[in-house]
């Protein structure tokens, strides 16, 4: 097969993920809002964002940030990595002109009672020295080359 995926034994607590750096433009914000079907004006209308919301520009919407976090995590796991749970805390907005930096580290590695391998990641989106969003992600990895988290259903999948 033409892809590689990380397995549980490849990782340990304290491992750092490579950073992802991305320069946000107005197109990033508008494309992200439309891709998540979010037509609220603060995600495409700068006049509204400035005069109604009192912020400096349009800003990234939450569902699109979720998509960014998913991409960041599965870039690291490979396609066999299967998301179980994500929790966000939004602390500040991300605007055009911001250089987003995604970084993350492994905070736990475990096998649950049904034999599923789980890694928990602490991921942050920062701009400059300001943390904009923190995200805890629980993602399933195969416990070895033969184990595929995507085959788990019902009682064998406990995210």
């Amino acid at each position: 097969m033409s892809f590689e995926s990380r397995v549980l034994g490849d990782t340990q607590v304290g491992d750092e993920l490579d950073e992802l750096v991305y320069l946000v433009t107005p197109t990033t914000v508008v494309l992200g809002a439309l891709a998540s079907r979010d037509y609220r004006p603060m995600h495409h209308d700068k006049d509204f964002a400035v005069n109604r919301n009192g912020v400096r520009d349009i800003f990234l919407n939450t569902p699109n940030q979720a998509a960014w976090f998913e991409r960041y995590v599965t870039d690291w796991t490979g396609p066999a990595g299967r998301l179980g749970r994500m929790t966000f805390q939004m602390k500040g907005s991300v605007f055009p002109g911001d250089s987003m930096v995604f970084s993350g580290s492994v905070t736990s590695v475990e096998v649950d009672e049904v034999g599923c391998g789980w890694v928990t990641l602490a991921v942050t989106l920062t701009v400059g020295d300001e943390i904009k969003t923190t995200c805890e992600v629980k993602v399933a990895l195969g416990v070895d080359d033969r184990d595929n988290p995507w085959e788990r259903r019902g009682e064998r999948w406990k995210p």
Binding site: S2, A67, W68
Partner: peptide, 24 residues
Amino acid sequence: TSCSSVENANPLFWDDEVAKSLTG
């Protein structure tokens, strides 16, 4: 559209063969 908005190249969403082999 969603993958494009975040430049997500995960082959699960772009390559039918990979999707078939991993996720049925």
